[in-house]
């Protein structure tokens, strides 16, 4: 089977545009609403989907995603449900790459081999584990390789050349460039500062590069799209989902927001 992530980046290149990566937390604010939002994302313009695996202690996330995770857990989200949601999504969409993102403990407790196998069977293409640096990820990379899943690694403004080499070894899918030294949904990234970093990175790797953290609006996204292959939007989307939970927005509002982001690219 063709690798969906590679195929999607090839398509984007042919269209000469950057892709839109949307993040939602699986099961936020409840399973049915979350599944409906997830299923509609491709039609509304998402080129890739990051599906967050909720965790009680999301240490790299700002308030928006902390709250998203908590709403999902309050509605009894769990790893089994997250994988079922992926499977349901795949019934009508066989092309959009689906990437699970989260923290290591729920994966470790589920069992790394069982997780990799079932994620693949559920139609998942890749995985981002925020608190698993290359030094610690071997127990996950082996089962993932066996299952045929891409391990997507993070590069940050603090990553120096020595670490870059360690990170690139074994990195798959694409590189996730964390644009700020901080947590998700806080400071805004600056394109002029990022450009030289991205240029440097391009000289070291052929992997596509997505930029995430600190990109909020359509105009932020448009600016970033000029220097990378894909732009990740998370906190601002889950804030809309939070408003659905509070009753002031609807599932259609997420669609409208995603369409606007996509049109800006």
């Amino acid at each position: 089977m063709v690798n969906r992530i590679a195929q999607r980046f090839a398509d984007l290149k042919a269209q000469n545009r950057a892709g839109l990566v949307t993040f939602i937390s699986a099961g936020d604010p409840d399973r049915d609403t979350s599944q409906a939002i997830l299923n509609d994302l491709p039609e509304n313009g998402a080129d890739f989907i990051e599906l967050g695996m909720p965790f009680s202690d999301p240490m790299a996330d700002g308030l928006a995603i902390q709250h998203a995770s908590q709403r999902a857990l309050n509605a009894h989200a769990c790893m089994t449900q997250t994988l079922q949601m992926a499977k349901s999504f795949r019934v009508n969409d066989t092309k959009t790459p689906l990437i699970l993102m989260g923290y290591f403990n729920p994966i470790y407790i589920y069992g790394t081999e069982r997780f990799a196998k079932e994620a693949k069977e559920s139609g998942v293409d890749g995985l981002i584990v925020v608190d698993l640096p290359p030094e610690e990820d071997q127990e996950l990379t082996d089962p993932m390789r066996d299952a045929g899943l891409d391990l997507i690694r993070l590069i940050t403004p603090t990553t120096d050349d020595d670490r870059l080499e360690t990170i690139l070894k074994g990195a798959g899918g694409f590189l996730y460039y964390v644009s700020i030294t901080g947590i998700t949904g806080t400071a805004s990234a600056n394109v002029d500062q990022l450009k030289p970093r991205l240029d440097h990175l391009r000289r070291k790797t052929d992997l596509p590069i997505a930029i995430g953290f600190g990109i909020k609006t359509a105009s932020d996204a448009a600016a970033m799209a000029r220097i990378c292959d894909a732009v990740v939007i998370g906190s601002s989307i889950v804030e809309t989902i939070g408003a659905i939970h509070d009753g002031s927005k609807t599932v259609q509002d997420v669609g409208t927001q995603v369409k606007a982001l996509r049109n800006a690219l």
């Binding site: 608190d131 030094e135 940050t156």
Partner: peptide, 12 residues
């Protein structure tokens, strides 16, 4: 034990 931290913290 080990070092299970976000990449941003690793160099630090």
């Amino acid at each position: 034990g080990g070092r299970y931290v976000a990449e941003t913290l690793m160099p630090l």
